[in-house]
Simulated scan of single mutants.
Amino acid sequence: MISAPTASAITYCDRSGYTATNEPMERCTSLDNGILSVHQASNGVVGTEYYKKSGSTISAKLGYSRSGTSHYASAVSIGSGQTKRVTWSLGASAYCSNIIGLMSAGSTYQTPTSHC
């Protein structure tokens, strides 16, 4: 697992849960103060990202759910204007799995399912 702040890659999420790429491998959820997204790559790497547009700094755990099992990284602080992304290498056999991005920050939030 790799956890690092990044420049925001996902700043747009439509009402159907698609990012600007409009690909089923990248799905998102618009929240009051930001955008939660999940992306899976053909090499089996899954990334969950939260872009915080506004509001107070929060402590959150980013994660994913696959086959009914949830996995979370350690909590990170995310301030206004920041993006945090966590990635997991699940192996190429995980590609095209039904994967949901998760964020736990007092409540649990999730993206629509990413898939092929």
Rank of each mutant, 00 (worst) to 15 (best):
S65L: 06
S74Q: 10
V46E: 00
T113L: 03
H39F: 14
N98M: 01
G34R: 00
N22S: 11
L62A: 07
S30T: 15
R15G: 04
S80C: 11
G68Q: 10
S107F: 13
L36N: 02
T6L: 14
A9V: 15
S59N: 10
Y72R: 13
S56F: 11
S80W: 11
S54V: 01
L62K: 00
S30V: 13
A7F: 05
T48S: 04
R27I: 14
G47Y: 10
H115S: 04
Q110H: 09
G44F: 10
A9W: 09
A75P: 02
T83D: 04
C116V: 12
P5T: 06
G47Q: 05
R66L: 02
Q82V: 11
M25L: 11
G101T: 04
E26H: 08
D32V: 11
T108D: 01
G63F: 06
S80L: 12
A75E: 08
N33F: 15
Y18N: 06
T6V: 15
T87C: 10
H71I: 14
A73Y: 03
R66E: 05
M25F: 14
P24E: 12
L31P: 00
S93L: 05
V38W: 10
L102G: 04
S37P: 09
A92I: 09
G63M: 04
T111L: 03
M1Y: 06
T83L: 11
A20C: 02
N43R: 13
T111F: 05
V46D: 00
G17A: 11
S30R: 15
M1V: 09
G68T: 06
S70I: 04
T69V: 12
G106S: 08
T69D: 02
C28S: 05
P112I: 07
M25H: 12
A41T: 13
T111D: 01
R27K: 09
I10L: 09
G68K: 12
S42K: 15
I10R: 02
I10K: 05
H39D: 02
L62G: 02
S8G: 08
Y12N: 13
T29W: 05
K53I: 09
G79D: 08
D32N: 14
I78K: 01
Y72A: 02
N43L: 13
G34L: 02
S59Y: 10
S77V: 08
I2L: 11
V76Y: 06
G91H: 01
V38Y: 01
V86L: 02
E23Q: 14
L90Q: 02
L36S: 07
Q82R: 04
W88D: 00
D14S: 14
S77G: 08
S42E: 11
H39E: 06
S89F: 10
T21R: 15
C13K: 12
S65R: 13
S59R: 15
N98T: 09
N33K: 11
G79A: 12
Q82N: 11
G106H: 08
